[in-house]
Amino acid sequence: MTDRGRAFSAVETVREGFRQTGYICNTEIATIVYLAFHLEKPVLVEGPAGVGKTELAKKAAAFLNVPLIRLQCYEGLDESKALYEWKYGKQLLYTQLLRDKLDQIVRREDDLGESIRTLHRYEDIFFSPQFLEARPLLRALQQEEGAVLLIDEVDKADEEFEAFLLEILSDFQVSIPEIGTVRSRTKPFVFLTSNSTRELSEALKRRCLHLFIPFPDPDLERQIVRHHVPGIPERLEKQLVLFIHEVRRMELKKAPSISETIDWARALILLHAEGLDRDLTRKTLNTFLKFEEDIRAVDEKIFLLVDKAIRETA
């Protein structure tokens, strides 16, 4: 805990720590992670696809040196998939295997009432932790050293599931009727991500710190590219980031994400490029544009975009 306390002693320390794990963030992200740690509150992260929402949670786990437990949400997700489930198959199998044993136990009794009372004494065996399948939420609570719990795309889950999450997120405990209450030893650090396909409930938002991550500004993105593609020539790196920013401003089906910027940079390095040119750009468009229409739209303007990127970095 003291180690962790030191890691979170100031906003700048958090920022530096994340940088060392390979996540370059701005002050806002660092501030909110810092606050979330001290207030012990979940962080709700929103933003366009590909700005590093999920990555933030992963790096937080690396930074804290605890396991990352991920719960991917989808329509119809329910408690048995998210929290725990009894291993029905194993229970059935065991009753079959132990049939003779059960017979013996029951045979000793004369009447039906006695038999059932006897069986009652044993039924706890089948509802014990050995037969419990822990799903992500329960697993996160069970970690001795704490964990980073990532609840990904919570907007895809149903509203009832959100209501159910509230209980866990505020108390960090769950009750399993057959076993009792499971309370977390160390509160997990929770990240929820959302792509805003629907409004989340007020109650959930109230309990979280809200972090909106937009696409990074050129300076930050250049830092990110430099960090991930160490040998990149400065001229190329500048032009490439500017080009991507111009492309993001267009009306596209899917704007290029940060990871796609990095992919493109790596591709260009492999092709020994020192700077952008039209031909090379045209040939490598498909590394960061994933729709035919998008490629066509950018292709039409490629002269303008490349020239602009080159001119502005000259």
Binding site: T31, Y34, E46
Partner: peptide, 26 residues
């Protein structure tokens, strides 16, 4: 509480702290 933790000294930090706790959608 967030302000008490993050302090009032740095304007961007104050703004992020308040933003994270008070404004919960885009």
């Amino acid at each position: 509480q967030a302000l008490a933790i993050s302090g009032y000294g740095d304007r961007p930090v104050v703004k992020s702290s308040l933003g994270a706790t008070l404004a919960k959608s885009v």
